[in-house]
Amino acid sequence: MKLLSNLTKQNHRKRIVELISKSDHIVLCSGWMKRAGLKKILPALENAKQKNNAVITIYSNKKHTDEECIIALNDFRHIVVDDIYSKYLHTKIYYFQAENNFNAIIGSANITHGGLVSNDELSVEISGLIGSKEHQDISSYLEQLEKYA
């Protein structure tokens, strides 16, 4: 387990972009998604999709997702959760898988400029082997997100 903060050189954006570039399965879940934040990671997502043939799923809350983000993510599996029909999506989890390993960043950072770069945000990064207890717990939560699809 590692702590990740925007108060250090290794901010959320840098770590998320680094993990995107190494992964073939990616799940990003952010209650808030703003254009300035998405611009920080979109090139890495596009590159992972093209070069790594990565499977990418993105969840965001309709109420707090910029329309520009919905358009920009048209070529991805982007699930926009409407809280009129379900619970309000407030989760921030970034999941990455490559071969037999996983990394998950769980904390306070949304996909906004502030969340990824400038706000005082704190997250925990968990890593390990696919099939470990930690992986099973995180996978179980990610399966629950599918109810929004």
Rank of each mutant, 00 (worst) to 15 (best):
F76Y: 10
S139P: 01
I111L: 03
A109N: 05
M1A: 09
N47V: 06
S108E: 09
T8E: 11
E68N: 13
K40P: 00
H64I: 06
M1G: 12
H12S: 03
D120Y: 09
F96D: 01
T91H: 10
L142A: 00
K34R: 15
Y85C: 03
E143G: 01
E46D: 09
Y141D: 03
I56P: 04
T112P: 05
T91V: 14
C69L: 02
I111K: 01
I126C: 01
K63E: 15
V55C: 05
K62E: 12
K62N: 10
I70V: 14
F102V: 06
I130M: 05
S108P: 04
H90P: 05
V117I: 15
A109L: 07
L129Y: 05
L4M: 06
I26E: 01
L142P: 04
E46F: 00
S86T: 14
D66N: 15
R15K: 15
K22H: 13
D75L: 08
A104E: 02
N101F: 09
S21R: 14
R13K: 15
L122K: 13
G114Q: 11
V81D: 00
K14E: 09
H25I: 08
K49S: 10
E46H: 07
Q97H: 12
L19C: 04
S123P: 01
L116K: 10
E134W: 03
Q136T: 14
S139Q: 11
K34L: 02
L145Q: 01
D66C: 07
N47G: 02
K34V: 04
D82W: 08
R13Q: 15
G114L: 00
L145A: 03
E121V: 12
K133I: 14
S139M: 04
L7G: 11
D137M: 13
K92T: 08
L28Y: 03
E99N: 15
I111M: 04
S21K: 15
L89D: 04
I41P: 02
V124Q: 08
G114M: 03
L38Q: 02
K34H: 11
G37P: 02
M1L: 09
Q10W: 04
K14T: 14
I138G: 06
L19Q: 09
D82F: 07
D120I: 12
K51A: 11
K87G: 13
E146T: 15
H12Q: 14
D24E: 12
H25T: 11
Y148C: 03
S132R: 05
Y59N: 04
V55P: 00
S132T: 14
R13M: 11
E67I: 11
E121Q: 14
